[in-house]
Amino acid sequence: MSLVTDTVPHESASRSDTPRADADRQTPACSAVAKWLSAHDFPDTQSRSIHGMTPLMLAALHGEDHIVAALLDEGACVGALDDGGNHALWYACLGGAPAPILRLIGAGLDIDHANGNDITCLMQAAASGRVEVMWLLMSLGASDSLVAPDGRNAFDMAADFGLQLFLTVGQLREAKRGSLRAADRHSAELTQPGTAGSVLPDSAPR
């Protein structure tokens, strides 16, 4: 009798502890996602904010890979598109953090997906001068032969960005030279005798 009494509660406790242990393991991740969603005014993983942005897109943009992973585990729609036809990978590339990019491609997102303007993630990276993102995407198989509606491919966009940067640097350099010349002229005028702004010492004859 005592053996039965001792054994049954032990087995019952073992069975009831297993789900509780599983729940304890799941609670931190679920809690983190819930707090993150609340902090960013998302009611749930499937909700959307301005311009159709989903929680997954926002987390990818911010480079929060642990939240991206947790959202995917919670069933967030990986293939959802915003109002411009961009998916979460676009936002990850815009943010530039490698981990969400790798995770979302691993989750099945099309690396060569073109948005509503027929611009791919590789083109976006090229047009914004994100060479490190371009390199990562191409190493993962992104096509550099696709063209935008204006006929440019990603390399064309990168070259145009580089040219614009070169011209901007030249303008900044010239502006700096102009400021230095103006400062030198002003300094020379102040040191010339009899010019406005010169101050005679108190002991000087008047």
Rank of each mutant, 00 (worst) to 15 (best):
H40F: 03
F42T: 04
M57N: 13
L89T: 14
L56M: 04
L37C: 12
A34N: 08
G79E: 13
L37V: 11
S38D: 12
L56K: 06
E64T: 01
A32G: 00
I50S: 08
W36I: 06
A80G: 12
G52H: 11
A70R: 09
E64H: 00
D41W: 03
E64P: 00
L58R: 12
R48H: 03
H62R: 13
H87M: 04
L56S: 01
R48D: 00
A59K: 10
P43S: 05
N86D: 14
D83L: 05
K35M: 12
H87T: 02
S49W: 15
M53V: 01
P43N: 02
P43H: 01
W36T: 04
P55T: 13
D83G: 05
G52K: 13
A60L: 11
I50F: 06
L56E: 05
T54K: 09
T54N: 08
V33F: 01
E64V: 02
F42H: 13
L81D: 10
L61Q: 15
D44N: 13
D44Q: 05
P55Y: 07
D41Y: 07
P43I: 02
W36M: 06
C77R: 04
Q46S: 15
H40T: 02
F42M: 07
V78S: 01
I50M: 05
A34M: 08
V78D: 01
A76R: 06
L71I: 01
A80F: 05
L81V: 04
D44K: 02
D73P: 04
A69P: 02
S47A: 15
I50T: 13
D41H: 11
